[in-house]
Each structure stands twice: as structure tokens, then as C-alpha cells.
Design a protein around this nucleic acid. Structure first.
Lengths: 248, 248
DNA sequence: CGTTTCGTTGACTAACTTCAATCGTAGTGG
DNA sequence: CCACTACGATTGAAGTTAGTCAACGAAACG
């Protein structure tokens, strides 16, 4: 595994990078104080498992930095990634004890955790938190459903293009546009993780990556560094509606 | 299309069949009164579209009786069902104007609708509603993620068995167990709808239904009436974890 | 410099789709 | 009442896509 720097946790909410996106986004100062009381940071190295499916889970929390994945595994070993957790995403389910999925750190990861019982209590008293959590959950549901279309109906090539689009779009909103139309990013996933996300084998992922490269849809430097010369072209390859409209 | 009786709407919340499962489940009498003010019933015939993806949606609501489906369609016509809405399920998203999916009545359908703006207002003032909606949304998210495993990793035969399991399990909880181990139900979906749900072609659905019948996993009378002599066997065919444990 | 991990590529196979013919039942109109 | 049609469903044969098995390549680590 490539050595990555271990990121350090912020010292308090004021300097927290996800302060205005996470479950605490709408909290007033006094509400934040209540959360500070029950919060602690945890760091994980790439590859570490944060929670095992079925295990007792005594905390909930937010991804502060790094990427984690939610995966389900069948008895015979087939696995499907069912969620990709980016900074500000929420982990855990208030009102339930056992974890439903494995949570694995895909990169080095810092999480802001809240002890579950007190968090549930605070949530009852703090509509701002419950409202924000509802909003985030609805967004996740939309993302999951969009992914169902990818898994159920798209070809291998379209699946790869869809995944790259998502990552490219996210990076495009994060970074200011240096070159208009051109997008550059590093894949945060191994070929195997991509395969688990897309319901493919890693060989098929590799082949389709090579095909997209051969056809000029993407450029690759090393295994992970991707350049997208024409984002519209990539979206067309993904089979998404591109004709000017806002994405669904 | 087979003629079905048009179901009539309940007259008030007290006699509503979904009173204790829907978004209003935890409401106090005075909270129900507020909802009664802004509610109205709508009926749809099997096959009718309730909402078109992208359209303005000026209401939210609950399925009272019947079944509806959420579907996404690509430009070239490929469609994927992304949700199956059963009685008590919630339709629409507070805080968003456009519908993200097509909502189609699969059977005759009665919905309890709330005008959207006032509903959003009531939700802000009524934690019982927001809490229940959060809980329901988390459940739907779990269902969507379970479905991602089905779509991404299961074989055609396992997919069919998974769908039958879900319907069988639902009917088993609804009806008291007449014959222990034996489950009987009517499929609420055409072969094409099953295919759209499972990310298959209708031919493959038909072939695998025949195969499951040939192998004695299910019995068929007509196209729709299904008998499952051994539910455990069906669950094994679905590839689900059956060894005594609680389902994930 | 060997070892490990991740990725690529090739040959072959299996699973599912596509195209097409046929069946059965329910509703329709002569 | 009975053909006629429409629709859903089934089945077969051929075609395509992605999976499987296997060898090899490249970079990083100790």
C-alpha cells in the first residue's frame, strides 16, 4: 500500500473543514457546545476496517478527511460497495445498534465521532441536527438510486465512465477551474475497489480503463492520475443526459 | 390490463389502514388535525403515471393502498426501477421542487397527498413527523443498498429468488401463517416490471421463473399466483445468509 | 534483490441478451 | 357465439458481453 501522510484531526469545530457541510452544519454555537462534549476524533490508516457488519456500534460520526467505503459481502466472498463516504458524510444509524455494512478506510481517514446514546438524546432536543441529517439521508438515497441505474442497466464502459464522472464532478466543484473543460484528479480507489463499486471484475475495469485511454476519453499517468480533456465527452460515454440540462 | 376494483379512500385518519406505519405514525391527535387540513386523496388506475421525472411536484404523500414504482429511464429507453412503493411508503421530497423519478401506479393505487408548502411548514413545527420521516428514509436507504448488492453481484436466478423472497417475506408478515413454511402470494408485477427491477430482460426473467418452477423451488398457477413450499430453500437460492441469524 | 501488491493483457468460457416464433387468455366487435 | 386482436408470457437459436483462469509487468518496500 502506498504510504500516505496521516492527517491530523482539527482541534475544535471552528477550524473544522467540514463544519458547514456535515450533520452539524446548521448548529448554533450552543448546540455545537453540546456536541463538543460527546465528540472525539479517530484516525484510520488506508485499508483498516472502521466497523464490521453486524458488530455493535457505539458511535456515529462524520468523515472529516479521507475516503471510506460501505460494503456488503456474501458468504462466498462476492462483495458490493454500496456507498462511498467522502468528507462530511455521516456514518452510522441513530436508533439502531448493529452496523449493517462493513465500513473500510479506502485512504487514510479521520473521523469525528459522537458517542451514540448521548447523540441520540441531543438529536431529540436539537431539530437543527435532525433536519440536517434528514436532508443528508435523502441525498444519499438519491445517490444510491442513481447508482442502481448504473449497476442494473449500464455497460462496463458506461459504468467506468459514470464513476469517473462522479469523481471528476466532485473535484471540479472543489477546485476552481484552471483550464476550462479539462479536469485532472487522482483516483482514490484501486481497480479492485472500482470493480466492487461497479459490480464488475477488476480485469474488466482494467480493460475498460485501457479502452477509454486508447479512445482518448481519458489520459493516464501512472495508474491513478487521470486527465479528462473533455468532460462532456466523458458524460456522453457515461450514458448520462448531457443536453444542457441540470443533472437529475 | 386485468380489470381491478378501484379502491376507495378512507374518510379520515382514524380509519386509515396505514395510520400507524406512515409518516404520520407518531402524530398526536392535534398534529393529525393539522395534517387533515392540507390533505386530499387521489386514486390512480394500474399503469397510470403519478408523476413524471423532472416535473414540478406540488405535493408529497403516502401510498394508502396498491403498489407504485419509482423508475429511471435513459435516453435510449433502458429503464431501471429504483424503488417499490408499498402501502405506507412516502413519495416526494420535502425541500425540492422537481421529481427525480417517474412514479407509476403498478396496481390500482390510492394516495394520501399533502400540499407540499404547508407540509414543509408543519414538518418544521412537528418533530414527530420529521423523526418518522428520517426513520423511514433510513429504512429506504438500507433497502436501496441491499438492492445494490442484488443488482451488482447476483446471478439472474439469485435475482429472481431475491425478489420473490422480498414479496414472500412481506406477505408472511401481513398474513398469519396458515401452513407453517408454505407461503402463497400473487405477484404484483408483470415480467417486464420484474425485469426492470432486477436489471434483466423479460426473457431472462421468464426463463428463470420456469427454471425455479422446474426445480420445485416455486409452484405457479397461471402467471401470477406463486406458492413457495419451502421458504428456506428460496432464501438459499437467493444467496442470502440463512443460517439462523437475523437478516441484515 | 527478492517479495509483495497492484495492474495489464490474452485466451477461453459462461451467462445473459437479442431476435424471432409461438402460446394462452381476456376483451372486442361482427 | 365465435373469430379477431392485443398483451403478456414462454421458448428456441444465435450473438455479445463480461467473467474466469492464467501469465506477465511495474512500482514500492524491506
Amino acid at each position: 500500500m502506498l504510504k500516505q501522510p496521516i492527517l491530523t484531526a482539527p482541534h475544535n469545530c471552528a477550524e473544522c473543514p467540514i463544519r458547514h457541510q456535515a450533520v452539524c452544519a446548521r448548529c448554533e454555537p450552543d448546540e455545537l457546545d453540546a456536541l463538543e462534549e460527546i465528540k472525539y476524533y479517530r484516525s484510520f490508516e488506508a485499508g483498516q476496517t472502521v466497523v464490521w457488519s453486524g458488530d455493535q456500534m457505539d458511535f456515529v460520526g462524520s468523515v472529516v478527511s479521507g475516503i471510506a467505503s460501505l460494503t456488503q459481502t456474501m458468504e462466498d466472498g462476492r462483495t458490493q460497495m454500496v456507498g462511498l463516504l467522502l468528507p462530511s458524510d455521516f456514518v452510522g444509524r441513530p436508533g439502531r445498534n448493529g452496523a449493517a455494512y462493513d465500513v473500510v478506510a479506502t485512504t487514510n481517514l479521520v473521523m469525528c465521532c459522537f458517542r451514540k446514546k448521548p447523540f441520540e438524546q441531543i438529536m431529540l432536543e436539537t431539530p437543527h441536527i435532525a433536519q440536517r441529517l434528514l436532508e443528508m439521508t435523502l441525498d444519499e438515497l438519491d445517490a444510491a438510486r442513481e447508482w442502481m441505474l448504473v449497476l442494473g442497466r449500464k455497460t462496463a464502459r458506461e459504468k467506468i465512465a459514470s464513476l469517473l464522472s462522479i469523481i471528476a464532478r466532485r473535484d471540479a466543484t472543489l477546485k476552481p477551474n484552471d483550464n476550462p473543460g479539462t479536469t485532472v484528479f487522482d483516483l482514490p480507489l484501486t481497480r479492485e475497489a472500482m470493480a466492487d463499486y461497479l459490480g464488475l471484475t477488476l480485469e474488466t475495469v482494467s480493460r475498460q480503463m485501457s479502452a477509454l485511454k486508447r479512445d482518448g476519453v481519458i489520459q493516464l499517468e501512472g495508474k491513478r492520475h487521470v486527465t479528462v480533456p473533455d468532460l462532456i465527452r466523458l458524460l456522453e460515454e457515461a450514458g448520462d443526459d448531457t443536453d444542457g440540462g441540470v443533472m437529475a
